[in-house]
Design a protein around this nucleic acid. Structure first.
Lengths: 226, 226
DNA sequence: CCTTGTGAACGACTTCACAGCC
DNA sequence: GGCTGTGAAGTCGTTCACAAGG
């Protein structure tokens, strides 16, 4: 409804809260206060409360937040209360790694199709999946109900792949190629540039600098005064 | 000098500018205006100028920025006008991938030592490097002048590894484990949580939402009206 | 006592708009 | 005409501080 009044930064932190709540749950906590949650993540209590109230009224005054109640709520809001079928394009070093990475499947993201343009790789098997040529994308997306795509190709081909994914009707793209790609409005886009992260780290070290102590170079610094 | 007046967001964009400038250089451009640079990255011209002037006076009024002049300046500022020796801890799927990832070496980051705690892996060779036990860290760091560490272990061991790296005297850590780690002030920290990125993407798709069109889930959206 | 939820105050970042220079 | 560098204005996000509830 009033989506766009929600600060992007707050949205970014949602998944972070979920992570931490799951950790609290494993430790046997049944209830958590905004200050406990904030402290664990390097955020203020006010920040936590404000963020959460953008998405609903989850707290119980005098008590805090019920862990077993908040976790499913956040999962539903994030859209991960179900599984997502994912296509992976580019079976190089990085693509191969992501294909084997367990963290994705644990969160309900299933890589169900892999693509590459190298004729030497096409039709080979990796991790139980047959590598397909890019032109098979539209059909696979339809047949397997694929909603997300991972771009793991070199920078030069990233835009072409993004366009192909968009035309195949994908909903969102996670781009690992070290370049900016443009997509139609109907497609959501996130990017992770691994070398870029190291460069930022390098800068911090050179400056003897203080860090942002957070997932995603986002934020949530606490013990550090930059 | 007056480091901390520089917005963190501007610092984050520095490496982005460098990327784009290198692309312009490959296309044969010798000079670039703030608006051209901004457009390519989804930023306003004013933003670009303001960001760059935090670090020096690089522009030529009436002309723009000299590509061949700005690139080395940015590289020096970022601290990547030389190579960095890097230690990688955790040779699982992700660690293995990052070890083979060319993007790091291309930017001057050399993985020179790899560590794991699994006795079955120790002393095996990967990519020309012998896997060492964690307790060999301090000596390796000293002998090989290692300044940066990559944490590619599961969440449970991430904090221990971070502590070990810090104690070995490393300058900066790039954490890929899906958990928050604490480090002493003397150590810089960046984190990349791959599954978290997918969760954020999932949210955007579910909301039919608009994206941040940028590296690093940071920012720089342009053609998209969130 | 303990907590949450929230307007109001504050601070940080971005954009505007123009002076100065090529 | 072109462009950059920069104070001033504006916008956005965070923190404060307190009313209301357990």
């Amino acid at each position: 409804m009033q989506d766009h009044l929600i600060p992007k930064a707050s949205i970014q932190r949602l998944a972070l809260y979920l992570r931490q709540l799951e950790q609290f749950q494993r430790s046997g906590e049944t209830t958590v206060s905004s200050s406990a949650l904030g402290e664990a993540l390097g955020l203020t209590d006010a920040q936590v409360r404000k963020d959460l109230t953008y998405f609903g009224q989850f707290g119980h005054p005098g008590i805090g937040y019920d862990v077993g109640e908040l976790i499913p709520s956040l999962r539903r809001i994030l859209g991960i209360d179900r599984t997502w079928n994912v296509a992976l394009v580019g079976v190089g070093n990085l693509g191969m790694a992501l294909l084997h990475y367990r963290g994705f499947r644990e969160q309900g993201f299933h890589v169900v199709s892999v693509f590459d343009q190298d004729p030497k790789k096409i039709h080979k098997e990796v991790n139980g999946l047959t590598i397909l040529p890019i032109h098979a994308l539209p059909e696979e997306v339809r047949k397997r109900d694929i909603r997300l795509g991972l771009i793991c190709v070199p920078a030069e081909s990233a835009q072409d792949v993004a366009t192909a994914l968009a035309e195949a009707g994908i909903g969102g793209i996670l781009n690992f190629a070290p370049t900016r790609v443009a997509v139609p409005d109907a497609v959501s886009l996130c990017s992770v540039d691994l070398a870029l992260e190291l460069e930022r780290l390098s800068f911090q070290v050179v400056r003897h600098a203080q860090p942002h102590v957070t997932p995603f170079s986002q934020d949530g610094n606490a013990a550090t005064g930059f």
